[in-house]
């Protein structure tokens, strides 16, 4: 089943690529836009938590937990339909995805799962107290950085 699913995804990507010819491909572009939106959702909620971690905004447990829950939901979005092949940097405008995401799929998956785990842990930490939140923040940031280092290309 998994194999068929994988094949059909590949077929979709191929079909989309064939459809597009030399011009921009709406299906692949859509995936990149959705991923970038996902990153914005993650950044927004991390920002709410980070404002408290820095002391710029007073700690509020209810706000922190709500932010952490949205962060965890965004981190847990199914990767199979977002990270489709053919959407690496250079192939689609706005993408900074390295080709290693697909050539080293297991490594990418491991890093993505680490973000899911750190984000889930943040829900509990955010509701506990500011110190717990700050400690969890370092883990969330660490998982972002580890994945970006390995699988995100340069800005320009």
């Amino acid at each position: 089943m998994k194999r068929i699913f994988g094949l059909s995804l590949a077929t979709c990507a191929l079909a989309a690529a064939a459809f597009a010819g030399s011009h921009a491909n709406p299906a692949l572009e859509g995936a990149v836009k959705a991923r970038n939106a996902q990153m914005s959702v993650i950044a927004y909620h991390t920002g709410l938590l980070g404002g408290m971690a820095k002391g710029d905004v007073p700690y509020d447990a209810a706000t922190a937990v709500a932010a952490a829950e949205n962060l965890a939901s965004a981190a847990a979005m199914k990767r199979a339909v977002l990270w489709i092949e053919g959407t690496e940097q250079g192939a689609v405008a706005g993408s900074r995805a390295k080709a290693e995401i697909w050539s080293d799929a297991a490594g990418f998956e491991e890093k993505a799962v680490a973000l899911e785990a750190a984000s889930s842990a943040m829900i509990t930490a955010a509701g506990t107290d500011l110190d717990a939140l700050r400690a969890a923040m370092a883990d969330v940031g660490g998982s972002c950085g580890a994945c970006h280092k390995a699988y995100r290309g340069p800005k320009n």
Partner: peptide
């Protein structure tokens, strides 16, 4: 915050060699 979690003020994360520096 950047030295602790690697988050920039707009909540992008550190890149390149700075990932290890922040670790």
């Amino acid at each position: 915050e950047y030295f602790t979690s690697g988050f920039t003020p707009d909540y992008d994360s550190a890149g390149g060699e700075m990932v290890e520096v922040i670790e």
